[in-house]
């Protein structure tokens, strides 16, 4: 092969390498400029200025309903959970309502116990005007104190009244 025939071949090989090298260099620069851009989104966090509702769930024995399945339902969509997760060690669950109306929070354990809380969220609460509007409106499902004693007496009284009625019916 003569020298005049080798010259275009060498120029072609050098050209190929130099164009590949440029491409690799450009890719490296791009990767360095945007780390992780090819595999994941960038993430960040900030403290939310939105007001949250926090509920505490407990059994009638006083135990907290800790680490149990908890779901919050918005009045805008009562079938699909707005938020799904678990209560914390102290039986607490928090959610940030974005809609006015009655929110439901359901906490279930695996032994057939379920707490179903209804939280009325007002427009004042959403706009931040009302301080304690939500928490003051929510009532416990299980009676406490004097209310509990009165209900217990009412129950016993009802049972004995049934017995008296049954005896009277027999006498008549």
């Amino acid at each position: 092969m003569t020298k005049s025939r080798m010259a275009p071949l060498c120029a072609g090989i050098i050209g190929l390498f130099s164009s590949t090298g440029l491409a690799v260099t450009a890719s490296l620069l791009l990767a360095l400029a945007m780390p992780g851009a090819a595999t994941a989104h960038g993430v960040g966090y900030r403290i939310s200025s939105k007001r949250a509702v926090t509920l505490e769930f407990y059994y009638s024995t006083g135990e907290t309903m800790a680490y149990l399945e908890a779901k919050a339902y918005s009045p805008a969509d009562e079938k699909n959970a707005f938020q799904s997760g678990r209560t914390d060690e102290f039986g607490r669950v928090s959610f940030v309502p974005d809609f006015e109306g009655e929110w439901r929070v359901v906490v279930k354990d695996e032994e057939g116990h379920m707490a179903d809380a209804v939280v009325p969220v007002t427009s004042e609460f959403l706009s931040g005007v009302s301080e304690n509007g939500v928490s003051a409106a929510v009532q416990s499902g299980f009676p406490q104190g004097v209310d509990l004693v009165l209900r217990a007496l009412l129950g016993v009284s009802a049972l004995f009244n049934i017995a008296v009625l049954a005896r009277l019916r027999k006498c008549i």
Partner: peptide
């Protein structure tokens, strides 16, 4: 029936 209601009350409480 009174005995039944008494036992029922104990169960209730």
């Amino acid at each position: 029936v009174v005995k039944v209601s008494m036992a029922s009350s104990v169960f209730f409480l």
